[in-house]
Amino acid sequence: MNDSGSVTTQASTVEAWTEALAQSTGSPGGGAGTGVMLAIAASLTSMVAGYTEAQGEQGSELEELHGRAKALRETALRLADDDAAASKSFGAAFRLDPGPERDEAIHRASVDAAKASAVLGDRAIEAIEDLGWLASHGNPALIADVVVAFGALRAAIAGARTNVSFDLSSLTSAGDELENVREEHPRLWATVARLSEALDRIDQLTASVDKKAAPTDGV
């Protein structure tokens, strides 16, 4: 069994990292998995962009898109490891004995975890339209890869949305009322709604290319 505390996305094999994820430690956990899903989406975006040819203004757009996808893959893996660290602190806070120290630790860990997931969600939102561009202008032979990327990106956004929401609600364990949480953390609260809207956008884009990606469906 691997020591999950020593496993990172950037210094481990897929086998070692997923073995650590499979352990009942919570670090890495679902939030870190969200980061890995974003990295997969970014990697597929980069691959499809590399197989796509475009001229003129579209060529410039494609080059910039390709650069963003390469950078996002690296960022997503770093954010996955950041989330794993935040998750470890989150779990440790809830294991403390009841009292003011525990309440303070839960509050701090919950906010830090929500912020980590929100950053990841923001990066995922930024990637949606690049995939949308490839759905319309990318190499048509790789449309299935675009749809797989949409699926990974959707999982990342859904995970980020749920984690931000759950972490904010965890503040009630430290004695806060949910209405107070919304007033104290308006940007994080608004992030949940933005991520929900992003899910709708991904579903719309995926549906628009479904017939090209899965032509045998319904035949």
Rank of each mutant, 00 (worst) to 15 (best):
L72W: 02
A190K: 15
T216I: 14
A135S: 13
E63I: 06
S60R: 14
R161F: 03
G67M: 01
R123A: 15
A105F: 09
T34N: 06
D83G: 07
T216N: 10
T52R: 02
T13D: 11
T191D: 13
A141T: 11
E53Y: 14
T206D: 06
G30F: 11
A85L: 08
A109G: 06
S169Q: 13
G67E: 06
K212I: 07
A156G: 01
D103Y: 08
A135D: 03
F90G: 03
E63N: 06
V148L: 04
G31F: 06
A80H: 03
R182Y: 14
M1A: 10
A198H: 08
G5A: 15
A149P: 05
G218M: 08
G33Q: 07
A42T: 08
D176E: 13
V7F: 06
I202T: 12
I40L: 14
F150E: 07
L44V: 05
E61T: 06
A71N: 15
I125T: 07
E101D: 15
R78E: 09
L131N: 00
E197W: 01
S165G: 05
A149F: 01
E177K: 09
S196L: 04
S6E: 05
A114C: 06
E101T: 15
E57K: 15
V119M: 09
V119L: 14
F94S: 06
A149E: 07
G121P: 10
G159A: 02
L178N: 00
D3I: 05
S87H: 03
A155Y: 09
A116C: 14
E53I: 13
G5I: 04
S46Y: 00
A84H: 00
L188V: 11
P140Q: 10
E179C: 02
T8F: 12
T75F: 12
V148H: 08
M1Y: 04
A92F: 04
L205Q: 01
D112G: 01
G99C: 09
G50I: 05
E129A: 13
A49E: 03
R78K: 15
D130W: 02
G159W: 04
G31T: 02
T52V: 01
T75M: 10
V146M: 00
A113F: 11
T8C: 14
G67Y: 03
V219W: 14
P98I: 04
G138S: 03
V219I: 15
D82G: 05
D82C: 15
A86V: 00
A124P: 00
E197R: 09
A16F: 00
A118C: 06
A144K: 07
R123S: 15
L153C: 13
L38F: 09
V209R: 02
L178C: 01
R73T: 06
T8H: 10
E64I: 07
I128F: 07
S12D: 07
E104D: 13
I40E: 03
D200N: 02
F94A: 03
E179G: 05
A71K: 08
F150K: 10
W17K: 01
R161K: 13
G59I: 11
T52H: 02
A160K: 05
P215A: 03
W133H: 00
A109S: 09
D145P: 12
S170R: 04
T52M: 04
G99D: 10
V111M: 06
S117E: 01
A85D: 05
V7T: 04
L205G: 00
A135K: 00
V48F: 00
V209S: 00
E129W: 15
